[in-house]
């Protein structure tokens, strides 16, 4: 780290998100704004110099015909070495997301979409490409309130809090667009909600939604599969997931079109 500290760091910023303080420094002040655009949703600027994590962007120079690599460090560990500056910012965005959600002090984050319905939350865990956003949009259009399409932010009592970042809707060419929920006629939830239903599902064309209910233990185990902090804070994570699993009914099964599942789910309560 000492060797890294000796480089000419020209600019930096500090932010705090979910109780985690992160610093970003760079050798080129011109890229600081670009780095700032990589901050996770809900990040707020901080004036503190002491941080939990420090990311360093060493911008490679060009001297004559020689081009130097750009590098991204997390503390003293080199994460990325590339000739493409955009790759640094892609990596930084994913790193910041992962590390903040993993270290959040009073939240346990799941990779899941969430809506509110009749005073309870419906949580839809799923990795990228699982069809979470499609299902969340369908639920919102049916009258549910929007909480998140990407993260379920659980507090230590197992309630889910709003994390209403714009929806990442994927187009046919694979690119995503950030769409505020209000554009789709939906409204954002405000306070925390207890979890009433967990839907473990993925999309297959032509399939009919015939779920089975998981036991509490199996539900908690499956939820851990989508958790950011499982390895760093397993005891706290297990405690929160068990609270969710004990309270909510966890349904698992393959689904067909989103609107069919929504009709079945919301009609049955």
């Amino acid at each position: 780290m000492e060797k890294l500290d000796r480089l000419g760091w020209a600019a930096g910023l500090t932010f705090v998100a979910h109780g985690v303080r992160v610093g970003i420094r760079t050798t080129d002040p011109g890229v600081l704004d670009r780095a700032a655009s990589c901050l996770p949703f809900g990040a707020k600027p901080s004036q503190k110099e002491c941080v939990d994590l420090l990311y360093s962007i060493n911008v490679g120079r060009q001297r004559g015909n020689v081009k130097y690599f750009h590098m991204l460090y997390a503390n003293d560990l080199r994460m990325v070495r590339t000739l493409y500056l955009e790759s640094i910012f892609s990596a930084l965005r994913h790193e910041l997301e992962a590390c903040v959600l993993e270290r959040a002090r009073r939240r346990v984050f799941l990779h899941a979409g969430v809506v509110g319905w009749q005073g309870q939350a419906i949580v839809v865990p799923g990795k990228t490409w699982a069809g979470k956003t499609t299902l969340i949009v369908a639920l919102v259009r049916a009258g549910a309130t929007y909480y998140s399409d990407e993260y379920a932010a659980l507090d230590l009592q197992g309630r889910v809090h709003p994390h209403p970042r714009p929806l990442s809707i994927r187009k046919e060419n694979g690119e995503t667009s950030e769409t505020p929920i209000e554009t789709l006629g939906g409204r954002t939830g405000r306070g925390p909600l207890p979890v009433g239903t967990v839907l473990m599902t993925h999309y297959r064309p032509g399939r009919v939604w015939r779920p089975r209910q998981l036991s509490i233990g199996r539900a908690a185990l499956q939820l851990m599969h989508y958790t950011y902090s499982a390895r760093l804070a397993p005891e706290r994570t297990m405690a929160v997931l068990l609270q969710v699993a004990e309270r909510a009914r966890t349904l698992t099964g393959v689904r067909g079109e989103a609107h069919e599942l929504v009709n079945t789910l919301l009609d049955n309560g």
Partner: peptide, 12 residues
């Protein structure tokens, strides 16, 4: 199950 790492959850 194998407990996932945080980076395994991050999108894309």
């Amino acid at each position: 199950i194998l407990a996932p790492t945080a980076r395994a959850q991050a999108s894309a």
